[in-house]
């Protein structure tokens, strides 16, 4: 192995810095929807960023008012992002909270049924069927 190959093999490559880009799939969706809306010209990136700053600021003020530590375990960057996304979509008149609530209730209902199905299949498998 040449010295250069050894470096390639041993050095910490930027790609393998070890952290996942997104911790959970919903975070990737939240990120990508906001970017896609910007790319589609639905809003300027700055407008979304201002909402994000407002959401993060509100969370920090609430934390400070509660006298909690800077990272008290309740921090979720993409939760703030999602709140900013919802606010920006409502502000731009693209969705309204009531119809969003309705869709959420429908999805929650569907998810509950999916879980029922899982249990049924599991029970069948347990009986060797």
């Amino acid at each position: 192995m040449s010295a250069a190959d050894a470096i390639r093999a041993e050095a910490t490559l930027p790609r393998s810095n070890g952290e996942l880009v997104f911790e959970e799939p919903w975070q990737a969706r939240a990120f990508s929807v906001a970017v896609a809306m910007t790319e589609a010209g639905r809003w300027e990136w700055d407008a979304f960023r201002d909402r994000l700053i407002a959401e993060i600021g509100a969370w920090e003020r609430e934390r400070d008012a509660a006298g909690a530590a800077p990272d008290d375990g309740t921090w979720s960057y993409y939760a703030r992002w999602t709140a900013a996304l919802e606010a920006a979509l409502c502000e731009h008149g693209l969705i309204d909270p009531a119809e969003l609530d309705a869709v959420q209730a429908r999805i929650a209902h569907q998810q509950a049924h999916e879980h029922d199905d899982d249990h049924d299949h599991g029970a069948l498998r347990d009986r060797g069927l």
Binding site: A30, S32, V33, A36, T82, Q104, I107, Q111
Partner: peptide, 30 residues
Amino acid sequence: VALRMRAIEALLIEKGILTSEVVDRVASTY
């Protein structure tokens, strides 16, 4: 919040504001 996000995306797709392909493409890029 995961459920809320699912609802946001579903609603945007239902209303024809975005397609899931566009969102997939952005996610895949990053």
